[in-house]
């Protein structure tokens, strides 16, 4: 099963992420986000951290989840590639996120992502769509 597909948007980049259920689509959206930011092949799953977000509804949950990960990347300089969703409902998500610290000698960064946006953001049964400001 395809995890995500990139969407073209004139100034920006977006994606549609798929899953067997919504939680998996959220995990794949996160994977898609990091694959926009960096070449993930060389990233090892050697350390993990817990990320938890809450929101008023599922749209905001996706917005908050992806922006939380952008924050983690920027502040802790950690590239993440595996997202084990531990708890999930429309307004709450907790995940164990695996990856490693960015190392310029081994990792290749691709595009900077400023933020996820609400523009065209869409939640379906088992897929999500989001546009990033890059």
């Amino acid at each position: 099963m395809k995890r995500f597909e990139l969407l073209e948007h004139t100034a920006d980049t977006g994606l549609i992420a798929y899953g067997h259920n919504l939680a998996e689509a959220f995990a794949n959206a996160a994977y898609g986000l990091f694959s926009i930011m960096a070449e993930l092949d060389g990233v090892r799953e050697v350390e993990s951290q817990m990320v938890a977000v809450s929101a008023e509804d599922t749209e905001s949950l996706l917005f908050n989840w992806l922006n939380e990960l952008i924050y983690v990347f920027e502040l802790e300089r950690r590239l993440l590639k595996r997202f084990d969703i531990i708890e999930f409902d429309e307004r709450w998500l907790k995940a164990e996120c695996w990856g490693e610290k960015y190392n310029s000698s081994r990792h290749q960064l691709k595009s900077g992502v400023k933020s996820a946006t609400y523009h065209m953001l869409k939640i379906d049964k088992d897929q999500v769509r989001v546009i990033f400001d890059v």
Binding site: L6, E8, H9, T10, A11, D12, T13, S111, V134
Partner: peptide, 8 residues
Amino acid sequence: GRVKSRAA
């Protein structure tokens, strides 16, 4: 003003 997406 862009005319081509970054991906394109």
